[in-house]
Design a protein around this nucleic acid. Structure first.
Lengths: 112, 112
DNA sequence: TTGACATGCAACCAAACGGTTGCATATAAA
DNA sequence: TTTATATGCAACCGTTTGGTTGCATGTCAA
């Protein structure tokens, strides 16, 4: 769970996932060509995506082909988003109630 | 987007969201009581959650009340999970195909 | 066998993270 | 007004992150 969120928290890694979403089976070198960093830099990002199980690899001779694995994302939905989604409408209602009550509250100076 | 994922990538912050999910309106001090770190430590985490718009705050005198805001999570679903979810069945089919073809491929030693 | 290519591993570095402590300020209560 | 409470701000510190470079190893092609 932490691994998945952490993997997704970097725009470079999200770009890599996007590219693998469009074109499955790219090699490390191919991924490194389009990236604004060295091949080793890309390799580190790929390792993180692999650790989060967001990328699956397959060896083909000396080429390592990469594929997007969207399964961990569904885990996020069911464990996190769905849970809060249920509370979303309630939260909106509660939020609206708070906003409406705001005019009755005292307005005071704040720290900074 | 980066902010949301980064905010969710820390178990302490996910715990804080869980607590605010169960009990809305907790103050910083109340959140700090149940946490295994100093109040200032919690304050830093809260600041990150606020920056990601996952937590909304409301001043009430000297008390700062905190509320969960699940809206950014739905953004994740629609921009990320939903997009890949569409491809999930296709990906599974493709993955199965690759696995089936695997027996025909040569097995070679790897680097490390 | 030799050379080119794809990848892995390790060391190094600046910057960011996650936490602490100390102190300042705003509000509430006595 | 004085005192206690709730929060904010800033400096500091060890570890992790995100990137680099250099070199070693495995595989394909002449």
């Amino acid at each position: 769970m932490t691994d998945v969120f952490h993997a997704l928290a970097d725009p470079t890694r999200r770009d890599l996932l996007d590219r693998l979403f469009l074109t499955g089976g790219l090699t490390l070198s191919e991924l490194a060509e389009g990236a604004p960093m060295s091949r080793q830099g890309v390799a580190k990002h790929i390792a993180i995506l692999e650790a989060a199980n967001l990328v699956t690899t397959e060896w083909e001779g000396r080429n390592k082909r990469h594929f997007l694995n969207p399964v961990p994302l569904t885990g996020i939905v069911h464990r996190w988003v769905g849970k809060f989604e249920d509370a979303r409408l309630d939260a909106l209602a509660e939020f609206k109630t708070r906003l409406e009550g705001q005019t009755d509250k005292k307005e005071t100076k704040r720290h900074g």
